[in-house]
Amino acid sequence: MARRRGWRRRRNRRLAVVGVALLAAVVVAFWSRIWPFVLAAVGLVGVGALVWWGWRTHRELRRKDAIFRAEQRVLENNRTLDQVDKLSGEDFEKMVAELFRRGGCTKVMRVGGRGDRGVDVTGVLPDGRSMVVQCKRFAPRRPVRSEDMQRMLGSRTDFGADVAIFVTNTRFTDDAERYAKDNEIIAIGRNLFATWLKGATVESLIQTGGGGQGGRRHLKAWQQTYGKPGRTRRKKPAS
């Protein structure tokens, strides 16, 4: 019994070796016929992938170039605060994005729109800090209140940004200015925005920071034109 079992094992091994050899011979013979087609298929897949990647890259570059040119047109065509006051909210965001880009900021993107989580522009400041920006284009008589900027804190956390910046074409109420200072929000108001249009650097605006209100002279001039922040002028009764 033992001899018979040993003979069967040796026979099975020989059969296994023969089977493997036959299988290898079949694969080699088969491969010699189909390998040109396999290589051709692999080459076509590679060329297709390269074409697809080039198309995607070209489309993305064109999209970014279109955004850049649109923002640049808005900036070039609106060099005064009176012109800025007439912009749509979207065009105001484009202008702010282009101003940051011209100021040396990188990775600047306008993300405003539905579901923007309170952020209109993102990017990286010249000193390397990441930023989130909220833009508000109001009528000049309408000041920014503290409730207008309360979402900035959550937005800064959501985006993991180092700096939160609030940009507007109008002024901030006293409460809004205090809120900005207490929560380390850089607020760029009407007067600072005017200097930005005239060529002030991003660094100087951030250093001026605070509520972004400008000096007392600016505040007085604004109040003479629009009334005190947060209040509306009462018309005198007709005599």
Rank of each mutant, 00 (worst) to 15 (best):
R117I: 11
G160Q: 01
P36V: 07
T170D: 09
R69N: 12
E98W: 03
D116E: 13
Q134G: 10
W53T: 12
G199M: 06
R13N: 05
T168H: 01
E93P: 04
H218T: 13
D91F: 06
A49G: 13
S204R: 03
L39Y: 07
F159T: 09
S130L: 15
V26K: 01
N191V: 08
V20L: 05
F37M: 15
G189P: 07
W7N: 09
V119P: 03
G89E: 07
T157G: 02
E147D: 15
A29I: 09
H58E: 15
D85A: 15
L61K: 12
I206F: 03
A21I: 00
P143W: 05
V132Y: 05
P237D: 12
R231W: 07
G115H: 11
L75V: 11
R141N: 11
G54P: 00
A49T: 05
R178I: 15
R3W: 06
Q224S: 15
L44C: 11
V167L: 03
R137L: 14
V124Y: 00
M95N: 02
A161W: 01
P126Y: 02
D127W: 06
I186D: 02
N169G: 10
W55A: 14
V38Q: 10
A139M: 14
Q213G: 14
I186L: 09
R178G: 04
V17G: 02
R114P: 10
G48R: 02
W7R: 11
R4G: 05
R10S: 10
T57Q: 15
R3T: 14
E76D: 14
D127M: 10
T106D: 09
